[in-house]
Design a protein around this nucleic acid. Structure first.
Lengths: 238, 238
DNA sequence: TTTATACTACTTGTATACAAGTATACTCAT
DNA sequence: ATGAGTATACTTGTATACAAGTAGTATAAA
């Protein structure tokens, strides 16, 4: 099996199990593996040319992320519905709001500096038409904010959300880099607003930014949904 | 190795890996396995008289819960600090507040009924001095609330939090059932308040209840901390 | 005494082997 | 034709085997 969706360079020092998990996740979220499909450990193992052990590990991870469901006989693919995506953003809103309240009580110069750097990276990624790099920096942006408050259980939530978000963002951005380049001015502006909100401690601006970000995603959702159908077809989910 | 801390009856249809995870978690949180201890898969396997496969599974689970840290050479025990416990309650507050907002927009008669039943169960558990049963119902109470809104990513957060919370509550309750029986009037009253808050949709009362619940935990914390030290000794964490 | 090298006894990650259970389909009897 | 029962080809969970790598010690040389 060839033709990997997940950037191989991001897996440089990952275990086989991680590789399988990342790739499977991408295939499921992209719709390349359809919802309802039943995956068998043995079949996956031969497909990926590895043994069952790493495949088992991968399936456990994906099950924890709710994109597959482990059953008696095989793992059935659940995928991401529109509801799921809304819910992921619910949780992001929830924790980023919480995090913001903590941040404004902290010394946040260093954080602002860091975020500014990431923002510049994002601009460069746009300039060089690098969707993957852009996605990476986008995810890193939010991760940096969340980790800044040193709250291990909030970090835990993020860590559980991150892989699915990352895959979703990757796929969305790859699509948008082919045609919707004008979107990125808005995205950049919105991230800049977020940084400003943190710098000034302006709760209002932060909420605005978060909601704009969410609207942005909702907008891309239809696009992505159709893209997903193009890849393989069908699935009227929910 | 004998002398299990986790109620065996709760593991009736669990896999070997789950059993190991639950028992290890209890031993770590109770302090029976000290912080900083390095666990080896092989050693654990022989201790529990199982193979490495289920032990590996268990360690992955505990690492996801942040009570151990998987390193190159062995898994080092992290345990629960006071900060961790505060953080767990941060997250509980966060998600239960979110959940409440949804609940008050729903038809919630059935839920109130369900919660009332659980509350009665808790009273019975007190009457019969059954700390484990009480803990079970206590955890179930909050789980029932959280699951009622059918939000898969909030459920996911709960599922990640639950095992650690359950262990912590189990250990706390076992201690309190031997001497602090008067605490339980307060706990019951507080849960009743929670139900009332849901029934009437009174946000104020809900927040009060949540905070009382949290204070209650903070109170027991010192007790538990000393109990933990009694079990094995040392550890001035943080 | 100190330093460098090699060795030993561990560690994990992956592959394979085995056991127990389940769904499908087929056969045989009615 | 239909139904009971059985064979079969799958499935997962656990155990074991093997390979690669790491830490710490012991040994030997200066």
């Amino acid at each position: 099996m060839s033709d990997f969706l997940y950037p191989i360079k991001w897996l440089s020092k990952a275990s086989t199990g991680d590789r399988v998990a990342h790739e499977l996740r991408m295939r499921i979220i992209s719709g390349k593996i359809e919802q309802g499909t039943v995956l068998s450990e043995n079949k996956l193992a031969t497909d990926f040319s590895v043994s069952r052990s790493p495949v088992r590990d991968a399936l456990k991870v994906l099950a924890a992320e709710r994109i597959i469901r482990l059953e008696r006989m095989g793992a059935v693919v659940v995928g991401l519905s529109e509801k799921d995506i809304r819910e992921i953003y619910d949780v992001r809103l929830l924790i980023e709001t919480f995090v913001f309240e903590r941040i404004v009580r902290m010394e946040r110069h260093e954080l602002v500096r860091e975020l500014s750097k990431i923002l510049e990276m994002m601009k460069v990624a746009i300039k060089f038409n690098d969707a993957d790099e852009f996605s990476y920096q986008d995810v890193l942006f939010h991760e940096t904010i969340i980790r800044s408050i040193d709250h291990s259980y909030v970090s835990m939530i993020w860590q559980n959300l991150k892989p699915v978000m990352e895959s979703f963002i990757l796929l969305s951005m790859r699509t948008r880099f082919e045609g919707q380049m004008e979107d990125f001015d808005r995205i950049i502006a919105n991230h800049a607003l977020y940084i400003e909100a943190i710098e000034t401690g302006d709760r209002e601006r932060m909420v605005t930014s978060l909601h704009q970000n969410f609207d942005d995603v909702q907008e891309v959702e239809d696009l992505w949904q159709s893209q997903q159908m193009m890849t393989k077809g069908v699935e009227p989910h929910d």
